[in-house]
Every structure is written in C-alpha cells, then in structure tokens.
Amino acid sequence: MRKIYFALAAFLMTATAFSQGVTTASIGGKVTSTAEEPLIGATVIAVHVPTGATYGAAADFDGFYRISNMRTGGPYTITISYVGYDDFVTEGIYLNLGQTTRISTQLAESATALQEVVVTGISGGIFSSNKTGTETNVSQRDINTLPAASRSIADFVRITPQAQVTEGNDGFSISLAGQNNRYNAVYIDGAVNNDVFGLAGSGTNGGQTGVNPFSVDAIETFQVNIAPFDVRQSGFSGGSINA
C-alpha cells in the first residue's frame, strides 16, 4: 500500500512539473552600422508603455543582443542607441507568449555641430609673490564654530596638516613640520610670546603651570606658517603662530 502512495505522489509531482510553461516573452536582434560593422555595446531599451516597465541590454562583441523575461503583450517602444550614431526608435511592438521577436537595425553616423567654447582664466591670488610658504588661516568664524575642549590655541592649530599636538603634564605641545616645539615662535600682535627659558613643554610663557598664555576669546584671527621663506619672519625653524 505504501508503494502505491509513493508512486501516486511521484506521478502528481511529474504532472505538476510538466504543467509549468513559459510565461514571458523576449526580443533579440543585431545592431550594426551602415557599413555592416557590429556596434559593440550598443544600448537597447524596451519600455512597456501601459506600465512603464523598462528592460535593457547591450550588444555583444558580434553586435547581437537579447532581452529575456519580458512581459507579454504591449505596446512596447524600442530604442537602440550608440555614441556617434542616430538613435533607432520603433513603437507599437507587441510580444507573443514564449516567442522571441527579432528587431535588428543599422545605425547611421550622426553629424553634430559643436558650439564655440570660450575658456577664461582669472587669477585667484593663490600663487603670488605674497605667498611665502605653507600657511593656515583661522578666522573668527572658525574660532566660534570649531570644537575647542580646552579653549586653547592648540585646539585650532590641529586643523593644520603639518601640526601635531600632544598633551602633557604642563599643557599642550605643538610640533610643526616635525620640529620640536621649542623651535616654534608665537606672536601676539607682533610681539614674541615664546618661553624664553625653555622650561615649558608647550613652548609658551607660563606653559609650565598648565594654563593658556592668552584667551582665545580675545583673538580675532591667527595664522600658522610652516617655515616660510620670508625675511621678515625669523627666529624659528619649525613654524610660527601669529595671533
């Protein structure tokens, strides 16, 4: 009895498998030039007008293309395009169930008149005699908007790519262009504000006490210069911080 049930189940599964048929359609063809050369990579777009469903494919090395699993019926609008050639557009295409509709075409070269292109160069002042080296300018807006946990000048020097800021027991230490912080120079309104005795790790006056030598709230803007070749700036080999 068990063998009969097994044979019946196998028969029903086989019948179900054979009852499954093709439910879609497809299109295919070849895209060439007027010289009958295959247009490799030509784009084929098929749009099912009632639903807006879009199908696409590209021509292969021999110019052939095929789009499978398309919705039956229509109408379809088929567009075949290639760079430097006129587009081929055909409308009102209907696809039959389980069949491949062949749409081949030859594209003609297109001649396009290019308009005149005028290129104008304007000096932006990036390269000029006033630029004497790598520099970073920190404006009042940057001071007000950038995050500053310690409210020190080191918080804003960090945005300089050549700067490395480290924290120590006696405050921050700023290394510019890989130099020791004692080779830097700090100017406040043109006056030198360095640690003349070299006792502080920060290289600024009063740095050994761990406090800031000045309040950033009193600074309108400052500039970080990396070893500029300007004879007016001297007394350092790493960089200068001019506030």
Rank of each mutant, 00 (worst) to 15 (best):
M1T: 15
L12C: 12
T16P: 06
A17S: 14
S19M: 01
S19T: 01
S19H: 06
G21D: 14
G28R: 06
V31D: 07
P38V: 02
G41K: 01
A42I: 00
T43G: 12
P50W: 00
N69Y: 09
M70N: 09
T72A: 08
T77N: 12
T79W: 04
I80L: 03
V83D: 10
G84V: 00
D87T: 05
G92R: 00
L95N: 00
N96C: 03
L97Q: 10
Q99T: 13
R102A: 15
T105V: 04
T105W: 02
T105A: 04
Q106C: 10
S110E: 14
A111L: 15
T112C: 12
A113C: 08
L114S: 14
E116N: 12
E116W: 04
V118H: 13
V119D: 10
I122F: 09
G125D: 12
I126S: 13
F127R: 11
K131T: 14
T136I: 01
N137A: 15
N137I: 11
I143D: 08
N144S: 15
R151M: 08
S152A: 05
V157N: 07
Q162Y: 02
Q164N: 14
T166A: 13
D170Q: 06
I174R: 04
V192H: 05
V192T: 06
F197H: 07
L199K: 09
L199C: 07
G201D: 08
Q208G: 08
T209K: 09
T209G: 13
F214A: 07
T221V: 06
Q223H: 11
I226V: 09
F229Y: 12
Q233C: 04
S234T: 15
S234C: 09
S234Q: 12
G238W: 01
A243E: 04
A243R: 04
A243F: 10
